[in-house]
Structures are given as C-alpha cells and as structure tokens.
Design a protein around this nucleic acid. Structure first.
Length: 402
DNA sequence: AGGTATTCACATGAAACTATTCTCTGAGTTAGG
DNA sequence: TAACTCAGAGAATAGTTTCATGTGAATACCTGT
C-alpha cells in the first residue's frame, strides 16, 4: 500500500516536466541577454563609463530606484559588456561588484575594504587586523600596477546607515593618493533620500552623475514576463491572462519585477504540485499567499531565540482581543524566560526587538500616545490566523516549550 | 469655559561593556647539526 | 641555531546594558468670567 503511494509519487514527479522547461530563467539571479525597457538608462550609464576603456577615470555614478526596477541587472549587463571589450583589447579594466547588504560579508567598513582587497588577489583575514592595515593592503595591491577600477556598491544605503560614510569618504578620495591606478565608484541604492544623509563632501563626489530607474509599469512588466516565460515554460502551459494578472499585481506594488517573476515561478510550482499541465489564473492568488506565508515562516525560524520569545509573548497576548502594548509583552516575556531558563533581556532591548519584528513585517507596531497614560507601541499581528497557529507551533518547538 | 502645566510609560539615542573570533608577536621550547 | 609552540596583546563585531533624554496628548490645576 505504502509502496504503491511512493511509486505514484515518483511517477508523478517524472510527469512534472510537463510545465517547466527551464525554471532557472525565472530566478532573480538569471541574466537575460537583453534588458528590456531600460535602454535609456543603460545608454546613459554606458556613456558615462565609456572613457574607462581608454583608462580615463569616469565620473562616479549614483544609481537609484525602487526594488526590482532593474538597477542591479542593468549594471551587471553593462559590466559584462565592458569587460568583454576590455578583455579583447587587453585593457586593464577591473569591475568589482559588492553587495553591501550581505551580512557578515560586506556590511562594515573593514569588510568592504577586505572584500575589495580580496578581489585584487590579496589574502585578508576576516578579523584580527586593524582597519588601517586593510586599507594599506588594498591600496598597495591597487597601485602595484596600472589599472582602472570600477567599484559597484549595491545597496549602498544599507552600508551607510550601518557603518557610516567613512568608507565612502575614503574611497572617493583615494585617487588623490594613487599614482598608477584610478578608481571610480558606482553606488546603487533603493531609496533616493539616502544621498541626503551622507556627508556633503561624499554626496558631491559620489553623485557626480545621477541615474534614476523609474518603476516598470504593468505593460513593461508584461513584456519582461513574456520574454522569460517563453523560455521557462513549455508551450501553451500558461492560461490566457496569467501574465497580465501577474504584471498587474506587481505593478500595483511599485512595479517590482522581481516580485512578478517570483509570483510567476511559484504559480508554476503550485500547479506543478497539483499535477496539472497548465498554470491557471487562480494559481497566482495561491502563489501570492504562499510566498507571503513562506517568507514569514522562513524569517521566524531563522530568528534568534530572544526574538522568538518576544514574538511568542505577543502571540499569547493576541487572543485577548485588546490592543497589545510594550509593557505587557515584557511582562509575559519575563515569565517566559523564567519558564524556559532563557536569559532575560532588558526592556530597552525588547523594545528594539519589537521594532525589528515590525520592520520584518511580521507584526504591525505603531507608536501611540495615550496621553496621561503614557506613550507606547500598539502592536497587532499582520499575519492571518491560520498562519499564526503554525507560527505558534514553530515557536513552541524552537523554545523547547511543552 | 479656556488655557497651561503635569505626568505617564515608554520611545529613542549614545556610549560603554561583554564575549567571541581571529591575527600577530615574541618568549620559550625542541630537535637537529 | 632554525623551526616550532603557545600565551598574551590587540582588533573587529554582534548583541547587550546603562544612562540620558525625548515626547504626545489625556488629565489636573488654574484663572478669570
């Protein structure tokens, strides 16, 4: 009996090929041959960067636009082309791409410079060295031979609000010291306001040129989706209107192409799991809630114990129906710590943890003033009840309750 | 009634501290010549 | 004497704690009518 089931499962698995042709195409990491609807921006950037092929230092560039508007993709596209040309003509051009958001890789001053040094072939330890020393290693490596270096710093805003703008300041000034080589910086950011919070000196040198990536509209999204879907799916798998709906959904959310692609891919996976041979419109709705559901669950399981405990406290208060306040959470949390032997943190810290959970979109927390009765955060859950139960179970497991 | 001052219950900020991970350095030790 | 070992100093970093200051509006308290 069981054996039979298993056989079925595998049989079905083989049939699954009916939908996807090449799922990789729908992944964000996939590089298409052409970047659609970004010709203008790409041209602008290419024109600014072109002098680097003659070893003239191009202006620094600041690129901004909402998530999923093709900034990173366009930049990588350009970089690839430039490197091809440089390679063919033996031009000592180097383009380094660093994503400043990557935790424990490139989110501090030390790590950025260390990463740059490593790209130039130096061996730099993760810790133990003074930051100055790392600067020196990078600098020496750079000036050893003549070259032009383009440093692409993605999510540069994350870097600045975590580690300050000292790195940028140093990097923008490094040309004054270099004898043989030259450096240009390309900063990519999600929010345009970021540039206003940095040191004015950094600001003026970083944004010698500004490029704005506007969000895609629904039609453009549809084009993009169509292009990728043709490769990713088998023929006639997509029901009419699927792409349109996908595009419309994401256009509403500030035209995020990444989201649109995710949506389409997951919709495909959903119908695949149901062993259907086509993707229907309803699958998109399912995909949307599945993505959200998975995202939340994923965040929660990877959250540290203390955050989990805080969240669990919120969940156990939530059933009472009334508004949840920071103080109440802290009370419950303290009891919970006693119960589980977890170290009790200060209220200050728990306050921060609550703010973090809010940032992650797991809960809604807004600061309200209750007049005479103080000021606090009012917290509510942002997930549906069905998910909450699951969350609770996960947390109980994670916290060794029960 | 209308205006001001208080007051609550945290929020928010900054600095300092703790613990961990890692390098570098130099003293002490070992093994071979 | 060269090579090796190992402890201690010094760094970077994440996660906290400690201390200090901020804050929005419901109430308490006046004031003059």
């Amino acid at each position: 009996m069981k054996k039979q089931k298993l056989t079925n499962l595998f049989e079905n698995f083989l049939k699954k090929d009916e939908i996807f042709n090449d799922k990789k195409v729908l992944q964000i990491s996939h590089m298409p041959d052409v970047v659609e609807h970004r010709e203008e921006q790409i041209n602008q950037i290419a024109q600014i960067l072109a002098p680097s092929l003659k070893l003239n230092r191009p202006s620094n560039i600041f690129i901004y636009g909402k998530t999923g508007s093709g900034k990173t993709l366009s930049m990588k596209h350009i970089a690839q082309n430039m490197l091809n040309v440089a390679d063919k003509n033996k031009i000592p051009l180097k383009i380094i791409y660093i994503n400043c958001k990557l935790k424990r890789v490139a989110d501090t001053e030390y790590r950025i410079i260390a990463q740059l040094g490593r790209e130039l072939g130096e061996k730099i330890p993760n810790t133990g060295l003074p930051t100055d020393e790392v600067y020196r290693i990078f600098f020496d490596a750079l000036d050893k031979k003549e070259m032009l270096l383009l440093i692409t710093l993605d999510e540069i805003d994350q870097l600045v609000n975590k580690a300050g703008d000292a790195v940028l300041y140093n990097l923008t000034r490094i040309n004054e010291e270099l004898k043989k080589s030259q450096v240009s910086i390309i900063g990519i950011s999600n929010n345009s306001r970021f540039i206003d919070i940095v040191d004015p000196r950094v600001k003026s040198s970083l944004s010698e040129e500004d490029i704005l990536f506007p969000p895609y509209n629904a039609l453009q999204l549809q084009d993009i989706l169509r292009g990728r879907a043709n490769k990713a799916f088998k023929e006639n798998v997509l029901e009419d209107g699927v792409l349109a709906k996908c595009a419309a959904y994401s256009a509403k959310e500030h035209g995020d192409a990444r989201r649109a692609l995710d949506l389409l891919r997951v919709a495909g996976e959903v119908s695949e799991r149901e062993c259907l041979s086509n993707v229907q419109i309803k699958h998109i709705d399912e995909a949307e809630s599945k993505i959200e559901h998975d995202r939340v669950l994923d965040i929660i399981t990877t959250q540290p114990k203390q955050s989990q405990a805080a969240l669990y406290s919120i969940l156990s208060l939530q059933s009472k129906g009334e508004a949840i306040l920071t103080g109440q959470i802290y009370d419950i949390y303290k009891k919970l710590c006693n119960q589980t032997g977890l170290k009790t943190l200060t209220q200050r810290r728990i306050g921060d943890i609550i703010a973090e959970l809010d940032m992650l979109g797991i809960i809604n927390a807004k600061v309200i003033s209750k007049g005479r009765y103080g000021r606090t955060r009012e917290i509510s859950l942002s997930t549906p009840d069905s998910t909450n139960n699951k969350i609770k179970r996960i947390l109980e497991e994670g916290l060794d309750l029960l």
